[in-house]
């Protein structure tokens, strides 16, 4: 690692511009897809596109693609713990109906 430039990866301008273009296209697709009836797939498509967009931002704008394993691990760790929060909370709510519970408001 050269200490002069801290070993930082400098992405070419074209990378940033093409990622920006991809994000714009994906945003358009999100809005377009929302107006098409895909049934249960509407939210899934919306979140999948959002996930792809977030991944592009993380990898290229935030340089995680070129970062240390520790940085990558930090990103994964945060998602892992959010996943625990979701999975275990929903484990309760998803099984609410099984014993003839009536969730409030329905």
């Amino acid at each position: 690692m050269s200490s002069g430039h801290s070993g930082v990866h400098v992405s070419p301008l074209s990378t940033y511009l093409s990622i920006f273009a991809a994000l714009m296209v994906l945003s358009a697709i999100t809005v377009g897809a929302a107006f098409v009836n895909l049934g249960a797939f509407n939210p899934i498509v919306a979140l999948a596109i959002a996930g792809v967009k977030a991944t592009l931002v993380i990898l290229f704008f935030m340089h995680v693609k070129y970062s240390s394993r520790l940085t990558k691990l930090t990103v994964v760790l945060s998602l892992f713990f959010v996943a625990i929060l979701f999975a275990e909370t929903l484990m309760d709510y998803a099984t609410r109906g099984w014993l003839n519970y009536t969730p409030m408001g329905q």
Binding site: E88, M91, T95, R96, L99
Partner: peptide, 15 residues
């Protein structure tokens, strides 16, 4: 393990 504080709070028996 957090919901062991909530066994009688109305969570389902499965959870």
């Amino acid at each position: 393990v957090w919901a062991h504080h909530m066994f009688v709070a109305g969570i389902t028996v499965y959870a």
